[in-house]
């Protein structure tokens, strides 16, 4: 599954858009969805840049899935507008959806059919596949997600992870310009999770946009270029992952083999510092070059100095709790 066989051909059909110049893969404006008395999505404006790996973060019930469902035309918005691959939803769905692969709310298949039959049914209604190509495409997709051996077993006997893989196979049956994965690692073991990461990386390499939602921060941090944070239906933050992290960045990480003297020198220079693993973390005080000069003057061995960036979890905690 690490080599996305069918994905490589995506370049033949889909031009790789230059990030920033191409229209966003998805765009929502003032999007709202109310279920009875519950506002699931509350006035969200969001662009998913073409070519990005876009992670949607948020606790359960924050509106991630509802937002995705409105994006794909599965749920009608209460108000607001949606564009998918530059086409309005729902009028443009017939033209847009063939280029979209999606795994939403878990894999949906019929228990009485085998994995292969289930995929054949998906392939039969796939406009991008000619009738004669459906068989080979199904076999290739099963091979890619590692289900070739289980292809003739009924879906009802599949484990959670196998079901998830079959769902992924259905989403990636043909090369896509946008792949939407809603909680893709649900039910997968660590190896499966790594495979998903590899798939996402492959997709990105072909120029496809990936929109994935998750409540697992480490997963998003590992693969995403962009993130959006949702809480109770509202968008709290959205943008390039690096920039978001920089915005909350502060302090310096100093790699040294001699942390004791280093701490003393830094404190004399007026910095708030503490030992952090093998090195030292400066949380506040003078700028990096000043600290570096002081350490060199005191003949403390310095192996490296770089800006300290918080991890996504810190960022997420800060955003959601502020």
């Amino acid at each position: 599954m690490s080599t996305a066989g069918g994905i490589g051909t995506a370049q033949e059909t889909a031009q790789r858009p230059e990030p920033g110049t191409a229209p966003p893969a998805a765009r929502v404006r003032a999007l709202r969805k109310v279920f009875g008395r519950v506002t699931a999505v509350d006035g969200v404006d969001l662009d998913v840049p073409a070519g990005s790996v876009f992670g949607m973060l948020g606790p359960n019930g924050s509106g991630k899935t509802t937002l995705i469902r409105m994006l794909l035309g599965l749920t009608r918005p209460t108000s607001g507008s949606v564009e998918l691959l530059g086409l309005p939803v729902p009028a443009g769905l017939p033209a847009a959806l063939p280029d979209v692969g999606a795994l939403v709310e878990g894999p949906g298949f019929h228990p009485f059919l085998t994995g292969r039959e289930n995929l054949r049914r998906v392939a039969a209604v796939e406009p991008r596949l000619a009738a004669r190509d459906t068989g080979p495409a199904v076999d290739a997709a099963l091979e890619r997600v590692g289900l070739a051996d289980a292809a003739r077993r009924r879906f009802r006997g599949y484990s959670l992870g196998m079901k998830q893989r079959l769902g992924l196979a259905a989403a990636l049956l043909v090369p896509r310009r946008l792949v939407v994965l809603d909680e893709p690692t649900n039910g997968l073991d660590p190896a499966g999770t790594r495979e998903i990461r590899a798939v996402v990386a492959d997709l990105r390499a072909t120029g496809a946009t990936v929109l994935l939602s998750s409540h697992l921060l480490s997963e998003v941090e590992a693969v995403c270029t962009h993130v959006a944070v949702l809480k109770q239906g509202s968008l709290l933050a959205a943008g390039e992952l690096g920039r978001l992290l920089d915005a909350v960045a502060g302090g310096w990480e100093i790699a040294t083999t001699d942390p004791g003297p280093a701490l003393r020198v830094l404190r004399e220079a007026g910095a708030t510092a503490r030992a952090d693993g093998p090195g030292v973390l400066v949380e506040d005080g003078p700028d990096g070059p000043v600290l570096f000069a002081a350490l060199v003057r005191a003949e403390v061995p310095v192996h490296g100095l770089r800006r300290h960036r918080p991890d996504l979890e810190t960022l997420f905690t800060r955003i959601t709790e502020s």
């Binding site: 858009p17 063939p98 280029d99 049914r121 039969a124 209604v125 796939e126 406009p127 009738a131």
Partner: peptide, 22 residues
Amino acid sequence: TGAPTAPRPVSWGRLLGAELRW
């Protein structure tokens, strides 16, 4: 949008065939 032209919808025959097979 730089997208390949939208494919023609799947033919009726193929659609009904898939449904009947199911």
